[in-house]
């Protein structure tokens, strides 16, 4: 006769409980992770009558930011913005230009790509964030610097400029750190869209390109 004090279903339950505890303890050791998610509205503006190609390189489409904890009381942070970046830029560009085409490869000599007037290549050069534990102010902030390139399908540069974006969560009331960082990132992405939409036609090299292409400097923002 078996000396076991528990029945088979009880043993299975205990195994599950042990597994859950082990997973919970492992999760406690991992970094605080945020996969940025949000809804981005289409811009309300007159479309610029050109066919724009867009190329998101792998680093942009899967952009993430990792920061190691500086003290034992802090946790590591992993902020994944790639998916939200692509979602925001796709919505924005669709509303800004008459036609937007996704390139099948990075523009360059001999690359097989659809014919377009110009190709935009956005890149996140730098991302910084601040949470109340670091700032001692109850505000969550995200700051980003983009490198934007406008090139021909052959990869020749048309314009090259940088642009910043900033977003903050005014209060952390009833929000977890992750939710607050997500909201700050969504605000920063909205700000990036607003900055791009209102300054694109004011970039001197872009203005010159639109002048050549359309005979006008495009629909300048107010």
């Amino acid at each position: 006769m078996s000396g076991s004090m528990t029945s088979a279903p009880e043993q299975a339950s205990l195994r599950w409980l042990a597994l859950l505890l082990a997973m919970a303890s492992l999760a406690a050791c991992g970094p605080a992770e945020v996969v940025v998610k949000g809804n981005f509205p289409a811009p309300l503006m007159q479309k610029i009558p050109i066919t724009l190609g867009v190329w998101y390189d792998d680093a942009f489409a899967h952009h993430e930011f990792f920061e190691e904890a500086k003290t034992k009381t802090e946790s590591d942070w992993l902020v994944r913005t790639g998916e939200a970046q692509v979602q925001m830029w796709d919505t924005l560009l669709d509303g800004m230009f008459t036609r937007v085409v996704h390139m099948s490869a990075r523009p360059g000599p001999g690359q097989m790509n659809p014919t377009v007037d110009a190709v935009l290549i956005p890149q996140v050069e730098e991302l910084q964030y601040a949470i109340p534990a670091q700032t001692s102010v109850k505000v969550y902030e995200i700051w980003m610097r983009y490198k934007l390139q406008l090139v021909t399908t052959g990869g020749n540069p048309i314009a090259d400029w940088t642009m910043t974006a900033y977003g903050k969560t005014p209060t952390a009331f009833l929000q977890t750190d992750q939710e607050a960082v997500n909201l700050a990132a969504v605000m920063a992405l909205r700000d990036a869209g607003a900055n791009f939409a209102t300054t694109f036609t004011k970039v001197p090299a872009v203005q010159a390109f639109l002048q050549r292409k359309l005979g006008t400097p495009g629909e300048a923002a107010p």
């Binding site: 509205p41 909205r190 607003a194």
Partner: peptide, 21 residues
């Protein structure tokens, strides 16, 4: 959201004269 991007913190009109633009 309807008027994006014209009423974001960066772009919102600060003076009534900005409405003209």
């Amino acid at each position: 959201n309807t008027f994006y991007p014209w009423f974001e913190p960066r772009t919102a009109p600060l003076r009534v004269t900005d409405l003209e633009r």
